[in-house]
Design a protein around this nucleic acid. Structure first.
Lengths: 352, 352
DNA sequence: TTGAAAGCGCTACCAA
DNA sequence: TTGGTAGCGCTTTCAA
């Protein structure tokens, strides 16, 4: 059976409290050097490990952090980082997956009242997270959220990509290549990061190119489910329209606020006219979001690495949680991360 | 503060044990209908939740399952399924990530002696898992492993893809298209699944084509790190060699035991000679493993869906764990899963 | 039908 | 330097 403090105490003919005191290095308990050694040694010999449940019950601390994914499939790379980093500071990671914020609310109430964790990480879209986080706030459970709550909840511990800077950086890069007619291609589902990206695009254009962006230069890449039967997607039609514009109005570059799919769509569309992505004369230059695993087909481009989500997990586990778990409040509670902007792999298929 | 049984008892002027008995529906405790209702109602009103630590301490059961990933990055899609399915039967999921089997051994000893979970799922390569599982076996902790231990540990609860059937199926499919000169392309790192795939290939060839496979038809796609500088990889050179063979000896199809990268390599190699993957006359037909996200470039092929790992998680969480957690032993402790064999997405880029 | 009481293993406080 | 003891919230046994 499992070894308890009592077992050690009995074996050494000492009191439990002395054993406990020595094992936990309590400041006001100090055994004679000899007893200290004996306790430590037999604890090791007998392979003593404190019982997690008993300790949790008594101390009220569980040494566990819960990570809740609310309606966000495919984001689980971060559990690896979280689990590993938390293990280093002696914490376990509990993972919960929820479909919507109502389920989340219920589960969180459960978590709280059953006292199964000392802190919570909330992962998902802002609209799904917000209410749950507010619940944790009123219950005074330390928590960190993924998302942009800079305006709505400036005191929450929060982590996200710096979407504004990402697009500013993208524009700056494109501008540095000499582009001035830069269009933006992104999604529009009224999600916070989408607004931030567009904001970054506008401000980048203002500061790097000195231009207020015209509406025609803001394109939407939303998939529309209704016309999957069409041979050309909405995006393709939009792009064809803008590329059909007179030469001097046509954008020479796109700041991308999409996934890789849109890059591929553009590549294939351009290929029809013998064009490719890149930096050579005649090329169209793309840069921005999209850094998934698959390579580009024909051309080249710079993207932010999406595997950098693990960096967010690192920030949470290294910068925020250690403080929060000690009952402290981090000096800076908002962490916006600029992922690395790198050349994306490409098959460089030749066009002819 | 959190509501306890005592709070309810005090409020209703009843004893704690009666309250506890009613709340847990204990068979030998039955309050008067009136008191039963009162207890249930106030418990709900006061939002009573049993304290996890106290319950664990007293009962010795934690209602938690630990999933340990040993040296297996990128496999975390399964936590989503595990977490969700376990939640349905009232269990929490603890996730641990370990670099090697030594770290795993230590962590598992810790888990066991601290009594933090009721069962364990081990995920990784057979050689990394085996020792840890043996530890769990001697400690009589219920566990499920991912991998092939049919021969080495036939009584372990184990789940994996049915790699033999997968390759048999692949060969059968290729044979049904009329192919007889079918080569195998796989890895050779002495991993169990690699051997199983090859075994399946051989047996498929035997039963569907009636041929003992010649060694020249077994190709290895191992990346060799040393010659990244070369413009042609080892795989390319091997393929070129076999495709340069006289027409009547050349394979017309490949059973693939690799990832998608090898498919792309082959596609590009074939493209140089104006060939593509597919089923049309002159095409080379590929089928088998490789089902990652990125589409094919030029041609077509059938692959097993690798997102089907979540099916393994489902089997673990639905078929094995409920039994094991009840202290029972599943009727059938080995579950081999045949993933779906589907046409893979392709850009269908035209070759000219 | 109900209640009293022991005790899971640990922490924390007080006394010697 | 050490030991005693209360009690965290719950389960379980026995008694009323």
């Amino acid at each position: 059976m499992r070894v308890t403090q009592r077992d050690i105490a009995k074996k050494l003919q000492l009191s439990i409290s002395l054993v406990a005191g020595v094992l936990n290095e309590r400041p006001n308990v100090w055994a004679s050097e000899e007893n200290r050694k004996r306790i430590l040694n037999t604890a090791k010999e007998m392979n003593y490990r404190p019982n997690a449940a008993a300790r949790a019950l008594r101390s009220g601390r569980t040494n566990t952090v819960a990570c809740l994914f609310i309606n966000s499939p495919g984001q689980h790379a971060i559990v690896e980082v979280l689990a590993e980093t938390l293990a280093n500071i002696g914490y376990d990671l509990l993972v919960k997956v929820m479909r919507d914020h109502e389920q989340a609310q219920r589960r969180i109430k459960n978590l709280i009242s059953r006292s199964v964790c000392d802190a919570v990480v909330l992962w998902g879209l802002e609209k799904d997270i917000e209410q749950s986080a507010m619940l944790l706030e009123t219950e005074k459970i330390p928590f960190v959220v993924k998302g942009h709550f800079e305006e709505s909840h400036p005191y929450w511990c929060q982590v996200d990509f710096d979407h504004i800077k990402m697009m500013e950086h993208t524009v700056k890069y494109l501008a540095s290549l000499g582009h001035t007619r830069i269009a933006y291609l992104g999604y529009d589902h009224d999600l916070v990061y989408e607004h931030k990206l567009l904001e970054g695009f506008r401000s980048g254009m203002r500061s790097c190119v000195g231009i207020e962006v015209k509406d025609e230069y803001i394109l939407t890449a939303n998939d529309d489910m209704e016309c999957t039967n069409d041979d050309t997607s909405v995006l393709e039609r939009e792009l064809e329209k803008i590329l059909a514009a007179p030469r001097e109005y046509r954008p020479t570059a796109f700041a991308m606020g999409t996934g890789l799919g849109a890059w591929h769509t553009i590549e294939k569309l351009l290929a029809k006219s013998g064009l490719k992505l890149g930096w050579e004369p005649g090329d169209i230059t793309l840069a921005g979001m999209g850094g998934e695993d698959a390579p580009l087909l024909f051309g080249e481009g710079y993207m932010f690495k999406d595997t950098d989500v693990t960096n967010l997990a690192n920030i949470i586990a290294l910068r925020f949680l250690p403080k929060l778990l000690k009952g402290e409040y981090p000096e800076s509670n908002i962490s916006l991360f600029l992922p690395s902007f790198v050349r994306h792999a490409s098959f460089r298929l030749s066009l002819r």
